[in-house]
């Protein structure tokens, strides 16, 4: 569906993107994750035919963006970070205008309109001038204009930008619903936005893709599950014995007891340890503690793992 090969973008001598190569299959939902200014918007605008790459090739559904831009534009729906809404038009007139602009007939627009209004839940503001819309509705109208012509590829740049928590949840639900009918590409610097809506992630740093794969694949590849947190009831053998038991487990590199200072609400008679292993040592630690006569209350990975992948990668390391 989408193929990029060695794509770069320079603004004067400054490299903003690339070289970047990847493919997206039809029906995939792919998230581009990266800090602000790493080239996410540049990449999306190249795919939406709004920016010319300095080198490399980009094709969407077999059409090259430079050789056949109009064919690409017909197949792509694009929601920029700031929805391109005309304040003087009512929502309905605006969507009809966009539909016609994208090559739809008046009849096709009229037929499609109720579906789009239902999908994006904008029916109640359809006759309102866009300048009077709240930020949440503006964003929904932005999504509506991107899908009015039933594009194969839907590109959204920071779709939850400037939304409140309730609107963010609604937007994520809307994106998940759109996954059934579109190939989706979303960019964000907020990890949950990507991990909760996409099947595959591309992590972008300094204009380059530094990692790609599903959340699980990335975690496995980067050994991020090696940090765990275990809470035990040491019993009469005491906390020191539990500590020693964990430290003596094969593969464990470091053990430290954590408590209220680390934001842990301990039950009376229990102790919590942060454990770092050479690999995923959850099973070994659990077995060692039980064999040592300690009750294991909880055993979890120490931190939200994908967060660590992201931070580790963009900080120049891999955890």
């Amino acid at each position: 569906m989408v193929e990029l090969s060695d794509v770069t973008k320079y603004y004067g001598p400054k490299r903003a993107l690339g070289p970047v190569s990847f493919e997206i299959e039809k029906g995939d939902a792919v998230g581009i994750l990266g800090l602000n200014g790493v080239g996410k918007t540049t990449l999306l605008r190249i795919l939406a035919c709004g920016l010319r790459p300095s080198s490399g090739s980009v094709s969407i559904d077999g059409h090259d963006v430079l050789d056949n831009p109009h064919e690409v534009r017909k197949r792509v729906g694009y929601l920029p970070e700031v929805p391109p809404v005309y304040g003087d038009m009512t929502v309905r007139d605006y969507l009809a205008f966009v539909g016609r602009l994208k090559g739809m007939t008046a009849g096709a627009v009229a037929e499609r309109m109720p579906v789009v209004e239902e999908c994006t839940r904008i029916a109640e503001v359809r006759d309102m001038p866009a300048r009077h819309l709240s930020q949440g509705y503006r964003q929904r109208v932005g999504v509506a204009q991107a899908i009015i012509h039933e594009p194969d590829l839907l590109i959204m740049d920071e779709p939850t930008h400037d939304l409140d928590p309730v609107q963010i949840v609604e937007m994520r639900a809307m994106i998940r619903a759109l996954k059934d009918s579109h190939t989706i590409l979303i960019s964000s610097h907020i990890l949950p936005e990507i991990s909760q809506t996409c099947d595959r992630l591309l992590i972008l740093d300094d204009g380059r893709i530094v990692a790609s794969g599903s959340e699980t694949e990335l975690e496995a590849r980067l050994f991020v599950s090696r940090r765990i947190r275990v809470t035990v009831r040491p019993g009469e053998k005491g906390v020191a014995a539990a500590h020693a038991r964990i430290a003596g487990t094969s593969g464990v590199k470091k053990v430290e007891k954590i408590g209220a200072d680390d934001g842990i609400a301990e039950e009376p008679g229990s102790a919590t340890f942060r454990v770092e292993g050479e690999s995923d040592v959850r099973a070994e630690v659990c077995r060692a503690l039980v064999e040592g006569g300690h009750d294991v209350i909880t055993l979890t990975r120490a931190e939200r793992q994908l967060e660590r992948v992201f931070v580790g990668l963009v900080a120049g390391g891999s955890n």
Binding site: C49, E71, P84, G87, V98, L101
Partner: peptide, 13 residues
């Protein structure tokens, strides 16, 4: 100024 040019730029026009 308002960003709507992006809509025209990414439309088959």
């Amino acid at each position: 100024q308002t960003g709507t040019q992006l809509l025209l730029d990414t439309s088959p026009v």
